[in-house]
């Protein structure tokens, strides 16, 4: 009798661990875990991660005076390692005195135009990517922490709606792949859960650093939808939702992805 009970106990343990293995892919995790060990090593090693080239360039830009005000970022913000720690994990946010959320890139450009009296940097330009990567690097390892600003609520909901809306010729929503089918294979590649925890990322396919906006545009083209205009607010809305969805996950920027 006793032996039978032990047997049953073992069976239920096996059943539980089998279920855990099955649902292992659906538990929330970074795209980092879906990569092979070689790529993980590449991201972890600062001297092999090509994103660090941009971080290095961003540091130079941080200290370089520019614009009509002839000010460098460092003139006001001092050492980024101290003052910019924890900034990247909060964005998108609503800057003081405004009503609309902006992402980190948008915030950098706001600072440039308002305080440095300089031209805003073009989206996906090397300079903007470098500064963004430099700021994001200061928050590496910190948990993603969207701000508690109640004004963000409606924007976040709009982002969630966009995420779940089917669109394009293939009639797919972001959620179709990244929620319902994450962890399965698409053309031999594991479908990631789409967490924005490594941006800006060095994507091997791009052979360059790129922003989350670029990644979102890629996906939109992939489902044969018309990508939103470069300056469209939809990207910020989606990013708001994605950052909230990834709340508490550790920032890996600059990440490396295949």
């Amino acid at each position: 009798m006793r032996r039978v009970r032990i047997g049953l106990g073992l069976a239920s343990i096996f059943a539980a661990s089998f279920a855990a293995a099955q649902s292992g892919d659906s538990s929330r995790h970074s795209g980092y875990q879906d990569m092979g060990p070689a790529l993980q090593k590449m991201q972890d090693d600062d001297s092999a991660n090509p994103g660090m080239l941009f971080v290095q360039a961003g540091e130079a830009l941080w200290n370089q005076r520019t614009g009509a005000a002839n000010k460098a970022c460092a003139d006001c913000h001092r050492a980024a390692a101290a003052t910019m720690k924890g900034v990247a994990v909060r964005y998108p946010a609503i800057p003081p005195g405004t009503a609309k959320p902006v992402d980190l890139e948008g915030r950098i450009n706001l600072c440039r135009t308002a305080n440095q009296k300089a031209e805003p940097l073009a989206g996906e330009s090397r300079e903007l990517l470098a500064l963004t990567a430099y700021l994001a690097r200061q928050s590496r390892g910190l948990p993603i922490a969207p701000p508690d600003d109640p004004r963000l609520g409606p924007f976040r909901e709009q982002g969630a709606e966009l995420y779940k809306r089917r669109q394009g010729q293939l009639n797919l929503a972001c959620a179709t792949c990244h929620d319902a089918n994450a962890g399965k294979k698409l053309a031999g590649v594991t479908i990631p859960q789409a967490h924005p925890d490594g941006y800006p990322v060095y994507r091997l396919e791009w052979q360059s650093l790129g922003s989350l906006k670029r990644r979102l545009r890629n996906c939109l083209v992939g489902i044969r939808a018309e990508a939103y205009a470069y300056d469209a607010p939809e990207y910020v809305l989606l990013e708001l939702y994605l950052m909230d969805r990834a709340k508490g996950m550790k920032l890996e920027a600059p990440g490396v992805r295949p």
Partner: peptide
């Protein structure tokens, strides 16, 4: 701008 990372 030349941008290099060396680890020795």
């Amino acid at each position: 701008m030349v941008n290099v990372l060396i680890n020795v």
